[in-house]
Design a binder for these strands. Structure first.
Lengths: 314, 314
DNA sequence: CCCAATCCATAGGCATTAACTATAGAATAT
DNA sequence: ATATTCTATAGTTAATGCCTATGGATTGGG
């Protein structure tokens, strides 16, 4: 069965004759007749009673007619339907984020995304960089939000923003008294470190190593929120991303920017080198940027370059 | 757009590659590729991203996929769907009946029909013979229940039953005293006649003319129920079809069979000479027969050849 | 790092099939 | 009765889908 056969069939049913239908379809009458006969053979049912002047539907033809119309309508609507879907933001998007980013921007990003594209379905995968890259290459996710460095040749990237690392300290800690700290202050003090399986943990590690600073690592954890708790209990200090600070409502820690060569991580969107980003994915990237800019604007009161220790008005 | 293109498209989407899809569809890979490319051109959208090893849907492809599946499913279900419709008695039937038949059997026939074919739609047209024949030829109705004679060469017929004509008289009339009457009793007595535009009126007219009986026609009406009222008021007698008697619950008239050559009309189903009756139409014919037989069985108590004047237990 | 395998696109020939012309047979309208 | 209209058939042409061969590109394995 093919669509043109259904088109011919409907034309005959509507016009009441093979010849008229042929004119409507801009084909010769024998061509149309043959296709109708072919359709009748395939269905094993005669579709029209050929009377002298006109042709009328048989019972089988009457049963076919609404189905044929439906199919033709759906086929005819495909092109505009696809455009509508693309235009309206309907569709499916699969993204990934690393665990040191997701908790801080995902809530706001999802909220924005659903507001902008209520018809879209999004699926989020929170995982370590290595696993996300595999998912990109394996085509399981379209896009990932991660942190440099990423070396895989199959990955293409676009930078989203730079996220500074700031010192997290207990409010009663000695260093909390000054408005800002320097790298040198880290030397030899008890330090709560993020596990190096996290790229952020590795980045901090490298950062200290390059400057030949060996913090006294008293704890190595998998979770930034564990770090927060340890720091607030005075177990040590740590370096945490600013996006954590901007969404911290606990008031248990204070945060100080690093004077001088402030460490930072570069957050990027990454996707398969050979894939063209879908419209939804491109929009998602923009939303992530917007969200971070929004956090910067509303949640960090950097009067004289320092991070406010207390976030009010959440 | 053609269905085989959608089939190929779905196969690629499902298998994740053109070559695999081609094997699934039992065509060579270039053939399938060409059809996909053709579809992409028609839609103005690229449907797959061709990556090295596999191909994945674009956003447009994702939008197309469910639509394509739907259409293919509907197309695949057509054959069985038609069979189901025919088997389940779904469908549309247009019938006609003449006014001297419809009131007496239509209620019971429709009830039976709806019980047997709850999914069917029936449309009934009550009209004079001449108009019904036009409707048959004009293909507006498929079937008509009428009375002989019918001469049109374009009409094919099947007899349904013979419906005797019986004398309708007032209960206080002289003739009501005898169990039966003869034709000769009609001579010269006041007679309520049906208009000759009705075939029944003409038949009665001819019947009397052939026997050279000239009843004294005191009233000519368009409606059998008018006749009933006139007769019950003693204005005269009339000949009415037995199907009227069998459904008369008024008890205002009594009815007497005609002894000897009883007049009768032959009720037939009529349809277009060149049309094959649909299953529903054939069933309708059978139901009309059944209904008349049922009326005969339950509504006429012909103990000794006479018609019961009073129909009880309705 | 190279080689083999795989994948998709292109090109060109083949074959199928849909379309066309011409016409016949039947039915209808004038 | 004649002319017109309708559908089916036959035979031919044209289109188009399919095939084989091949090339460029990528991938996976040794």
């Amino acid at each position: 069965m093919e669509l043109h056969q259904l088109r011919y069939f409907v034309a005959v049913a509507d016009s009441g004759g093979f010849s008229k239908a042929a004119r409507i379809c801009f084909v010769a009458q024998p061509s149309l007749s043959q296709q109708i006969i072919k359709l009748e053979k395939e269905l094993g049912q005669r579709l029209f009673e050929r009377l002298g002047r006109t042709s009328v539907l048989t019972e089988a033809g009457r049963a076919l007619l609404p189905r044929a119309r439906l199919i033709l309508k759906e086929a005819g609507d495909i092109k505009s339907g696809i455009s509508d879907d693309l235009g309206s933001g309907a569709g499916q998007l699969s993204v990934g984020l690393i665990p040191t980013i997701a908790p801080y921007i995902l809530p706001g990003v999802l909220k924005r995304f659903y507001e902008s594209f209520p018809k879209a379905r999004i699926s989020v995968n929170e995982n370590l960089t290595e696993r996300l890259i595999k998912s990109i290459i394996g085509l399981e996710i379209e896009l990932a939000v991660m942190s440099l460095p990423i070396e895989d040749k199959l990955i293409r990237m676009e930078p989203l923003f730079e996220d500074p690392l700031v010192l997290a300290i207990s409010p009663v800690h000695e260093l909390a008294k000054s408005e800002h700290v320097t790298i040198e202050d880290l030397r030899g003090i008890p330090f709560i470190a993020l596990d190096e399986e996290h790229c952020l943990g590795e980045q901090i590690n490298n950062f200290c190593y390059e400057r030949q600073i060996n913090p006294d690592i008293v704890c190595r954890t998998w979770n930034l929120s564990t770090i927060q708790h340890c720091v607030s209990f005075g177990s040590g200090v740590s370096l945490v991303p600013k996006m954590l600070v901007m969404t911290d409502v606990s008031n248990k820690c204070v945060y100080r920017p690093i004077k001088g060569q402030s460490p930072k991580r570069t957050v990027v969107a990454a996707w398969h080198r050979d894939r063209k980003l879908s419209k939804l994915a491109a929009e998602f990237i923009q939303i992530v940027k917007d969200e971070y800019a929004y956090l910067l604007e509303t949640r960090s009161y950097e009067g004289s370059g320092n991070v406010s220790p207390i976030i009010a008005n959440f």
